[in-house]
């Protein structure tokens, strides 16, 4: 025993390295939801306050662009108001109120930290559990999809950006109705890729891609991007489509967190089917 201890002591540099390296790789690889939540809760109070101070300072530099965006969005919203439409029948407006049920709830949030230069990018938002934010909610900007909420603390939440190895979003090409999967290959933060579109349909440059709504996370019909490059590998049955994100992922400032109010019911139902 004494010899073993003496051996370890003699090579303490190597053994300390081994312990620290294994500890950090375990932290990196073992990403259980519980472990993540514990770390996020411990560290977010500190990093969150620094990040929000930082973004409240830099926010001033983008006030003009933000105002322009808001004004443009306001214009669209004004148009959809009741007095912007011609009402032909009083009965119709009544029917709209009773027939439609709200399926998605939108919460506005401010981006306090963002990145696009890494292989796996995350965004931190200034809304958390206290504001009703939960795991697996969609995050969209006025121009298009942004990501999915992956962990939440009391006042902040981390969003897995679409610029992430683990991000997969179900989408379809609007003109054709064909469904595929949106991924990011990691090269260029401006371009995403769409897979699983069969080669027998004719995709053209400029086709718009919208979310399909099949994932129970993103609402249907949120814009994803426009097709730029179309490739087929020799002997492959699916296109390799490159497209430009419609959201300005590097210039994000305010986003909407979307809760699907029927999500639990939908997930529960699909579980029953899988079980049988």
């Amino acid at each position: 025993m004494r010899h073993i201890l003496a051996f370890i002591w003699k090579h303490n540099f190597f053994f300390l390295f081994l312990v620290l390296e294994i500890l950090s790789v375990v932290l990196l690889v073992n990403k259980s939801y519980y472990q993540r939540a514990v770390i996020t809760n411990l560290t977010d109070r500190f990093t969150g306050s620094i990040n929000s101070t930082y973004s409240s300072i830099t926010g001033y530099f983008y006030l003009k662009q933000e105002n322009d965006k808001l004004a443009a969005e306001n214009a669209v919203l004004w148009q959809s108001l009741k007095h912007g439409l011609v009402t032909t029948d009083t009965l119709t407006t009544q029917l709209v109120d009773t027939l439609n049920r709200q399926t998605y709830r939108y919460t506005v949030a401010k981006v306090v930290s963002n990145s696009t230069g890494k292989r796996n990018n995350y965004i931190m938002l200034n809304k958390g559990k206290r504001h009703g934010i939960e795991h697996d909610m969609a995050v969209i900007s006025p121009n298009g999809i942004v990501g999915t909420v992956v962990s939440v603390s009391d006042n902040f939440s981390w969003v897995m950006s679409v610029l992430n190895k683990h991000s997969k979003v179900s989408a379809r090409i609007d003109r054709l109705g064909q469904m595929g999967t949106v991924l990011w290959q990691g090269q260029n933060p401006d371009k995403g890729s769409l897979t699983d579109i069969p080669v027998h349909v004719k995709v053209i440059k400029g086709d718009t891609i919208y979310t399909s709504g099949f994932s129970h996370i993103f609402p249907e019909g949120v814009m994803v991007g426009t097709v730029e490059t179309i490739k087929v590998k020799e002997g492959d049955h699916f296109y390799d489509i490159g497209f430009k994100w419609s959201a300005d992922l590097n210039g994000l400032s305010h986003v909407y967190i979307v809760k699907n109010l029927f999500r639990e019911e939908q997930v529960e139902l699909s579980k029953q089917v899988i079980d049988e």
Binding site: N12, F13, L16, F17, L20, E21, S24, V25, V26, L27, L28, V29, I39, T43, F46, T47, I50, N51, S113, S115, K118, N120, Y122, M124, W158
Partner: peptide, 28 residues
């Protein structure tokens, strides 16, 4: 000393990690 080198590297990497939500990556 070796222990100081390794422990400060661990602390450094971990501090960067909690800011970029990539626990373990910079540390390792």
């Amino acid at each position: 000393p070796g222990w100081f080198l390794l422990l400060s590297a661990f602390a450094l990497g971990f501090s960067i990690d909690i800011f970029s939500n990539s626990v373990g990556l910079h540390t390792a």
